[in-house]
């Protein structure tokens, strides 16, 4: 049985009267990519910053690799790698110099050039940090988070504000960590990022954990099932479909048919038969799969969008 490398029990963080993290517990096994998913203000960064020894906890306990973060802060720091939110390094040092600076902070560290190569930064090795694009800065941040060959890597919103290409590059870097057997703790408000990268997801809302499981498991449990979308129907088609499929929903010119679990093919073929038999017209038909966005929406009534609700 794989051992737990992170154990959080009854964690509470308060700022005055405001409770940012409210009695949450979870554990993470070695080699997992575990994602904290939630909108801004859900308590993700507060929780991860407590685990990174950046913030103190109000109540509860956090155990990292067998060390209590309150008693063994220095030991924890030597064993973890961190990419903080809105990461920045020394603007007027080059990529190599920045990685070397942070490497020298640890008694044992990896070879800097091997990290430069691992993160595909060879062509930017001697470029000043300030002259890098956002995606490259994040890759330097990931390289820096690996300088001490950590067993656990914390990545706090690693792709926020990046363009799609840069996001993909960051995702590739995270996948490489998984291949190396590292445990990765990821916080994100992008459901596609959590779905693509994480083996297990924890959904956070207003400081509480509201769901936990694999992305597929959460989608099956809370996603509300798959939906057949019949797009851009004319008025006659809409009326016919509403009469024939009483449970369907209307959104603008579209008709939405919820596909029953285990019987989705029948619902689809019935809808297509109705369209063919009556000579109805529409732009297209497709099946929209439920996502983590739907999970969040169904659980909280809120949307998981950048910038919060």
């Amino acid at each position: 049985m794989t051992k737990n490398v992170i154990e959080v029990k009854s964690l509470v963080k308060k700022y005055g009267d405001f409770t940012a993290v409210d009695n949450i517990s979870f554990s993470i096994k070695k080699g997992e990519i575990f994602a904290f998913l939630g909108p801004n203000g859900a308590g993700k960064t507060t929780t991860v910053e407590i685990m990174e020894c950046l913030k103190s906890l109000t109540a509860g306990s956090v155990n990292i690799l067998g060390y209590d973060i309150k008693k063994d802060e220095m030991k924890v720091k030597q064993k973890i790698g961190v990419l903080p939110q809105d990461f920045n390094a020394f603007e007027w040092l080059t990529v190599y110099e920045n990685i070397d600076y942070f490497a020298q902070m640890y008694p044992k560290h990896l070879d800097v050039d091997s990290l430069v190569e691992m993160l595909s930064l060879e062509h930017k090795r001697d470029v000043l940090f300030k002259d890098l694009s956002g995606g490259l800065k994040q890759r330097v941040g990931i390289a820096i988070s690996l300088v001490n060959d950590p067993e656990i890597v914390f990545l706090d919103e690693p792709s926020t504000g990046l363009d799609p290409k840069a996001r993909r590059d960051v995702w590739d870097a995270v996948k490489k960590l998984k291949k190396q057997g590292k445990t990765v703790f990821l916080t994100t408000h992008y459901m596609d990022e959590a779905h693509y990268l994480a083996g297990r997801v924890c959904v956070l809302h207003n400081g509480h954990i509201i769901a936990e499981g694999t992305p597929e498991d959460l989608i099956n449990r809370y996603g509300g099932g798959n939906m057949l979308i019949i797009r851009e129907c004319d008025g006659h088609t809409r009326n016919e479909l509403i009469k024939s499929i009483p449970d369907c929903k209307v959104e603008g010119n579209d008709i939405l048919v919820e596909l029953e679990e285990g019987n989705g093919m029948k619902s689809m073929s019935d809808a297509i038969s109705i369209i063919n038999a009556n000579g109805l017209t529409c732009e297209e038909l497709y099946v929209k799969k439920a996502t983590l966005e739907d999970v969040f929406l169904n659980l909280t009534g809120d949307k998981l969008v950048e910038g919060g609700k």
Partner: peptide, 13 residues
């Protein structure tokens, strides 16, 4: 302001 301290605080220095 730039977050350099936040990163430094996660290291042993």
């Amino acid at each position: 302001k730039s977050g350099v301290f936040r990163k430094l605080a996660t290291t042993p220095i």
